[in-house]
Nucleic acid binder design. Sequence first.
DNA 1: ATACGTTCTAAATGAACGTTTAGATCCGCT
DNA 2: AGCGGATCTAAACGTTCATTTAGAACGTAT
Lengths: 201, 201
Amino acid sequence: MISSTAPENVKDVHGVRERILTAGRAEFAQNGLGAGSVRAIGERAGVTAAMINYYFGGKRALYDAVVSEAQARLGRRLSAAVAGDRAGLAPRLAAAHFDFLSEEPELQRLLLREVLDQGQSVRELAARYVQPLRALFEQHFGADDEALQLAVSLFGAVAGYFLYEPLLGAFLGVDPHSPGALARRRRHVIRLATHLDEMNR
Amino acid sequence: MISSTAPENVKDVHGVRERILTAGRAEFAQNGLGAGSVRAIGERAGVTAAMINYYFGGKRALYDAVVSEAQARLGRRLSAAVAGDRAGLAPRLAAAHFDFLSEEPELQRLLLREVLDQGQSVRELAARYVQPLRALFEQHFGADDEALQLAVSLFGAVAGYFLYEPLLGAFLGVDPHSPGALARRRRHVIRLATHLDEMNR
DNA sequence: ATACGTTCTAAATGAACGTTTAGATCCGCT
DNA sequence: AGCGGATCTAAACGTTCATTTAGAACGTAT
C-alpha cells in the first residue's frame, strides 16, 4: 500500500504538491531513487526541500507516489488496449505499449530504473498486470510455448527500441526519436504483433 | 581514453587491485555509479576505501575501468561471433548476445545502468561496435528497412528477456533463469534470427 | 641489520545528504 | 481588526559521502 505519511490537513491551494510530483518524476527518472536528491527536486519545483516532507512525508514516500502514478498510467493504457474486440488484441497491445513509451520517455526511464533496482513495486506490478495478461493470452492463444516466446520477443522489441536508443541511433543511421523513425518502428512492431495473431489461426 | 590516474609504481602483489575491480563491478551493477559507495566497495574487497584511490585514482576512474572492461568482454564475444563464415551470421550473433547476457547477469545490469545514465561510454561503444555491425549488416542484408527493423527487434528480444526478468517470471510461469526456460528462450531467439537470415534469400 | 619503496590503515576534511525545528507569512473567518 | 490554521523558509542536526594525509607495517635488497 503506497501512501504518503503527510498530514491530512494539507490543501495545496497553489499546486505545489503537483509541482513537486512533476519535479520528482523528472529527477528520479534522470538519477534514480538513490542518486536523486530532494534538494534538486525542491529547486525544480521552486520550493525548499522541506516541502517534500511537508507534502509527502519524505524522499522515499515521494518516490513511491511517483512510481505508483507512472505504473497506474501505463496500466490504464494497457487496460484500454485489452478492452474491446478480441480480434487484433496483440497488435493493439503492442501499439499501446509503443505509444506509451514514445509519448512518455520520462516514465519509460523511471520504470526501467525501478525494474533495475528490483523495487518491490515491480513484483506488485507483475501480479497486478502481467498475470492477468498471461491468463488472457492463454485463453486467446493457448499455452503454446512458441506463442509465449513470440509475445516476450514482441514486448522486448517494443521496449528495447527505446531503451537502447543511443546505440540504435548509430545502427539505424537516424535519430530513433525522429517522427519518421518512430512511424517506421511503429509499423514494424504492429506487423510483428499481427504475425503473432495470425500464427494462431 | 579511459585510464586510471593511479601512480605508476603500484605492483599489486596480493591481487588487491583485481579484488577491488570485482567488488566495484558488483557494487556498481547493483547500485549504479551515483548510488554506489566506495566504502561498500572497500568492504566487499576487504580493504579500506582509500585503496580505491590508491589503485585507481578515485571512484569515477574505477567505474570507468569496470565499465570499459565489461564492454570489452561483450565486444570480444560479439567479434568472435562475427568472425568466421558468412552463412548463419545472424543466429550466431543472437546466440552470442544471449549467452553473454545469461552467463554474466552482473555485466548485463552494469551496462544497462550505463545506458540509462547516458554515459558517454555508450556513445563510444556505439561508434566502436554498432557502426561496424551496421556496415556488415548492410553488405550482408542490404539497406532494406524491414531487415533493419527485424534486427533491432531481435536485439531487443534478446536483451528484453533479461531486463524484464521479474515481470517475465509472472508471464512465463517459471523462473526465467532456470535451465529449461533459458534453453527454450535460446532456441526461440536463434530461430528468430534464422528467420531473419532466410528472409533475405 | 639497515635502508627503501610498496602497500595499507586510521583519522581528518569538507561537502552533500535527508530530515527536523522554530518561526515567519499568508489567508479565510469571525 | 484579530485569531487560527495552512503554507513555506532558513537554519541546524546528524549522518554519510569521496578524498586526502600522515604514518605504520611489510618485503626485498644491500
